[in-house]
Amino acid sequence: MYDAPLTRREAAVDDVKISARDVQVFYGDNHAIKDVDVDIQDKTVTAFIGPSGCGKSTFLRCLNRMNDTIDICRVEGRITIDGDDIYDKRVDPVQLRAKVGMVFQKPNPFPKSIYDNVAYGPKIHGMAKNKAELDEIVERALRRGAIWDEVKDRLHAPGTGLSGGQQQRLCIARAVATEPEVLLMDEPCSALDPIATAQVEELIDELRQTYSVVIVTHSMQQAARVSQKTAFFHLGHLVEFGETGQIFTNPEDKRTESYITGRIG
């Protein structure tokens, strides 16, 4: 991915995984997200960029209904995953979150062993019949999180004892352990140093083979490096959405151009 020129970068597949139509989000009286329409494709990295407070994280948290935990938050409009409306009454947010995994801004491993961190999701979803299967799932997840080699000898050491970058990759491993179809990442590298960031970015690119990845980032360079599609949010509006190459080289909207060139934000 690092070699492909920006202009020639395109999404590989054209299946729409998540589709949002006319989404409004309110925090009490505050209208945080206004009329957002977006189609997120499968096996693609979609980046949400925009200045602080523009609503990109809020929108991301709508996609797995993490906003449900905030009492005053209200979501209107229609968000579908594979055609199912996720805000339908029949949808259990717990099942949805197993399907749409999430990685948070600050690495937040459970204060348990590395093994237990990864095994927790599969355990509560009943994915393993016995210890051997669980071991296998944990190893697969840790390998996919590109951290297996570093932790395989100390699976029962506390997850909180790892370095920041390792913790974040552990969190990614934990998120992929439940075999989700979509992976949401809320500024996954903002607490990491450049080397750890590079490792996580590389990992994100690998994850694209299997998942639809949505990443919120403050760093435009990161968006340009890892994503195929980019959405630019500003003051609660989705200003522009398109191929990453096009957004960064030839934005249609004046505001996008100003943000990318550093004049606002």
Binding site: N64, M66, T69, V94, Q95, R97, A98, G101, M102, V103, F104, K106, N108, P109, F110, P111, Y120, G121, I124, H125, C171, R174, A175, A177, T178
Partner: peptide, 27 residues
């Protein structure tokens, strides 16, 4: 107990009660 622990548990698909009893309460 930091809210990030609750987020982490909910994020992997734990129910509210599982998040509380598996993670928040022990801490």
């Amino acid at each position: 107990v930091p809210p990030s622990i609750r987020d982490a548990a909910l994020g992997v698909g734990a129910s509210k009660m599982q998040a509380v009893f598996h993670h928040v309460l022990p801490l």
